[in-house]
């Protein structure tokens, strides 16, 4: 079945203003778009994981808005920076930031999880040009990203690789295999970001399987570690720059976030981690909270 995208909700035009504060405002605007689009797509899909998509919206907006050496016309450039969404269940947020920056059509991306759509429940590399590898099994994206970083070094490319991991994902043994390997091979072109929202599928990390002391774990694995507020755009940009200047070691940014950030009734509630069905009232309330007006809400939820 052919999938026909129809541009009703246009992606805002990309701007790269030079003054630092303007850039931050631009990234905040992108993050707000990601949150609204995520809510709308999950409402339309009738399922999806809102909590962890909302918590990483600012991280994605900062990466795509300022850090990645990547544009819609360079998605096939061998020397582009790579971004891997290892926490694949946050796919709606990746599609939304892609739409915001023109990597895909914003309205088409509202067909999340629908048959015939390339916007699968978890990202698939063969169906969208800005998806770098298929994810959805926790831990694997991190290893694939490591392989990319290794290969880019072998090819003497100056491209960098970024992987976004969930906190619950860190319970996978493969993550620590990869952590050991990246440090051993001194992959300083490799940057991991942990979306540390403290909640996982069933409950708090602490209740399921304790992660702390988390910074100390990464330091013990010989990574350059930074711990920041994952909703502070200026801090994110500053830390990415520091990671880029780190030599001989991979970098990890532990980004403290709030699960469900931006939607009051979801914030810090584990119930909104898993694949959920949003009611009309819940979707409207969420979009209102994210500053959408009535016309925009109708377009998001009913537009074709």
């Amino acid at each position: 079945m052919a999938f026909t995208p129809k541009a009703v909700i246009a992606a805002p035009a990309q701007q790269k203003p030079t003054p630092a504060r303007d850039l931050e405002v631009e990234i905040e605007r992108a993050a707000r778009f990601v949150r609204r689009h995520t809510i709308a797509a999950i409402y339309r899909a009738g399922s999806g994981h809102p909590g962890g998509a909302l918590s990483c919206a600012d991280i994605l907006a900062a990466l795509f808005g300022a850090e990645l050496n990547l544009w819609p016309n360079t998605v096939a450039d061998p020397d582009r920076d790579r971004f891997v969404l290892s926490k694949g269940h946050a796919a709606p947020a990746l599609y939304a930031i892609g739409a915001h920056h023109g990597y895909c059509d914003a309205t088409a991306a509202l067909a999340l999880r629908k048959i015939g759509s390339p916007f699968h429940g978890h990202p698939h590399v063969r169906d969208l040009p800005f998806v770098e590898t298929s994810t959805g099994s926790l831990g694997q994206g991190f290893s694939v990203a490591l392989g990319m970083a290794m290969g880019l070094k072998l090819r003497n490319s100056c491209a960098r690789v970024y992987a976004l991991l969930g906190d619950g994902e860190l319970q996978e043994g493969e993550v620590w295999e990869a952590a050991m390997c990246a440090a051993h091979h001194k992959l300083d072109n490799f940057c991991a970001i942990i979306d540390y929202n403290k909640l996982q599928s069933d409950a708090r990390n602490d209740a399921i399987m304790r992660l702390e002391p988390l910074s100390a774990k990464w330091r013990a694995f010989d990574w350059a570690v930074a711990e920041i507020d994952g909703h502070d755009i200026a801090a994110l940009l500053r830390t990415f720059r520091r990671a880029g200047a780190t030599r001989e070691r991979p970098s990890v940014i532990i980004a403290n976030t709030i699960k469900g950030k931006g939607v009051a009734y979801m914030e810090n509630m584990p119930a909104w981690h898993g694949s959920v069905k949003l009611t009309r009232a819940q979707a409207e309330e969420a979009l209102e909270g994210l500053g959408a007006n009535r016309k925009e809400i109708r377009e998001y939820l009913d537009g074709v």
Partner: peptide
Amino acid sequence: QNMMAAAGGLAAV
């Protein structure tokens, strides 16, 4: 496990 998945990344580049 890391080796197998990393092969995917190496092939990707």
